[in-house]
Design a protein around this nucleic acid. Structure first.
Lengths: 332, 332
DNA sequence: TCAGCTTGTTGAAGCGCTCTAATCATTGTG
DNA sequence: CACAATGATTAGAGCGCTTCAACAAGCTGA
């Protein structure tokens, strides 16, 4: 920086101002500084800059499970919104491990990001609220009733309700739900399923799993082995639906003739025509935008009260759902 | 830090030493410092630390395309290896955009990571070598003949050869290759395909695409519309194979009866039984370990000469390849 | 002409840490 | 008992930047 100042014939302070585009720098010195900086290939040291200014103009994004194609799409939206807002992103993933997640959050705090977005977070609310004392936090895809962190969520209760209504309309009565356990939003999805089944006077049938293929496959096995009649399965997310699809294939069931199957998230895999999974779309890009907006409001406009956005999902009907084979017999 | 020092009844310098586990600190003061730090919830400021020491003990990982399930698996291996090496990771993704990628690299440099891993990078070699002047770089899944950056690669020529040999053994003669364009490793895969076809006396048939589903689907359409006989398609990666599968489904082809299909990367999607794509496994976890090892050697042991690792892939035969329908007629 | 503004510029302090060299205690040696 | 050697501790400089108060210079209007 000293070199640049000397070369441009000004003081170090002015170099700082000029490079950050301050209005109170004359055009001539600004040009001189710019030229000198270019010629010297000078890049300001972010560390020093932060140390002096407490700003990094960087947001952190924590992705819980990189293997779940749902998250990259949310990341897309976030990145784009951050770009237009003039912030850059740094990411980290936790691979579904709580310790990893806690450490990743600490890394972000150590690096003094200006804001932090947690997607599909699974650590306890206490950990998050503790971290929120150091940095503004937005939690995406995990409902939290907090006064200190913002949340951006899909209405998972409604989504589940839409799925069940869709299946019931097709004539299904025996709908089994593959629960997502601690996965993001899975409690709401379960509740939506149960409430809707109950409202229609049908019995719930829940097998527990997680948001992975392997556990979805296992859960489907358990469901089939339970001896209960099942004509449709509603999995907590696309990944577990894919696992269930594996099991159904293996067990000789044809989807949707013998069994209807629904996922949740509308990931790219679900959209493959070869799979054509009926599922719920969460409008992920929108989630991302809202998350960045919330952060910018806090950082730049000093908002301190928490906001909680909930956006409505939509049903995407593809080729894994159809009327149950025995519809004619059981009738309406 | 001053507070901690005061509370522990020692100097600031000793707090620094104690917290970093220096050997020249008495057990008693070490304990006192630890306790004081805990009580105060003190976390050293990474920025300040770096400013003074030039170290962050963090590696950066740039993932080119988060939507391609190949990369998360590589990231898994990298993260694990970094963990055991005592480094933490920061990630960033570029979404297949060169400008984004360049900016992401700059962000990492600004954040002064101790080392940088580029996976599936697409920017020009010049950009990478320029960046390598600021930080040790390992390039994964992109062959580069550089004297300044390390590379860790799969033997894509060999992998392609294995695919073609497999198909030829099944009786295929008319094998079409869906090229990956600028995608990582795609040049080698193309070369392996062409060389092997040529060696067996068969004509090459290449349609160009990229490493995405959409372009794979399009390429398959072009191939089918070309009027040339095709009994098998070898796509540059799993994603484009999936796209081709969509097209084949739509066009009424049954895989593998009417058409065999092979991918590359052995992603989780390929492994879904419902898809069961024959593909090449790159031993991604190993790639990740080697990358971290290379970085640590440079950072901690001062290696300056570039190393280039190439590891052998293996063929994973699933259910999208079979003998061509007309084998009996065309015979051997 | 001059007080009072602007506008542009600068010196110096300070951000929170590490590191070097110096200091202080303690022990061992001839 | 002086002196070297060892081990533990500390003061203070410095890392590269921002920021703030102060200042110089050119303008304004009375």
């Amino acid at each position: 920086m000293d070199d640049v100042a000397r070369r441009a014939g000004v003081s170090r302070a002015l170099v700082s101002l000029a490079l950050r585009g301050s209005a109170k720098v004359s055009d001539s010195s600004r040009a001189a500084v710019r030229r000198a900086a270019d010629e010297l290939g000078y890049r300001p040291n972010l560390m020093a800059r932060h140390l002096a200014s407490k700003q990094t103009r960087t947001f952190g994004l924590l992705i819980n499970d990189l293997h779940n194609p749902y998250f990259p799409s949310v990341a897309d939206g976030i990145k784009r919104a951050a770009d237009t807002g003039g912030y850059r992103m740094l990411m980290n993933s936790a691979f579904l491990n709580d310790d990893d997640e806690t450490r990743a959050i600490e890394t972000f705090i150590d690096y003094r990001v200006d804001g932090l977005i947690l997607t599909g977070s699974r650590v306890s609310a206490a950990v998050i609220e503790q971290a929120a004392r150091s940095v503004p936090i937005v939690v995406v895809s995990r409902p939290m009733d907090s006064t200190v962190v913002d949340t951006i969520n899909n209405d998972d209760f409604l989504g589940a309700q839409m799925v069940v209504e869709h299946l019931i309309e097709l004539g299904h009565r025996h709908i089994c739900h593959i629960d997502g356990g601690r996965g993001a939003g899975s409690a709401q999805r379960l509740a939506g399923y149960q409430a809707t089944m109950h409202r229609h006077g049908f019995a719930s049938h829940v097998v527990s799993a997680a948001f992975t293929e392997a556990s979805g496959a296992l859960a489907a096995q358990k469901a089939l082995a339970s001896g209960r009649t099942i004509s449709a399965m509603f999995a907590g997310n696309d990944l577990s639906a894919l696992g269930a699809l594996d099991t159904l294939d293996d067990s000789g069931f044809t989807v949707p003739d013998d069994m209807s199957l629904v996922g949740y998230d509308n990931t790219s895999v679900a959209a493959l025509r070869h799979i054509g999974l009926t599922t719920i779309d969460q409008h992920r890009e929108r989630l991302g935008e809202l998350a960045i907006d919330a952060l910018i409001e806090r950082v730049e406009h000093g908002r301190t009260q928490a906001v909680h956005h909930v956006i409505a999902p939509s049903l995407v009907v593809r080729s894994t759902t159809a009327a149950p084979r025995d519809q004619a017999i059981r009738g309406q």
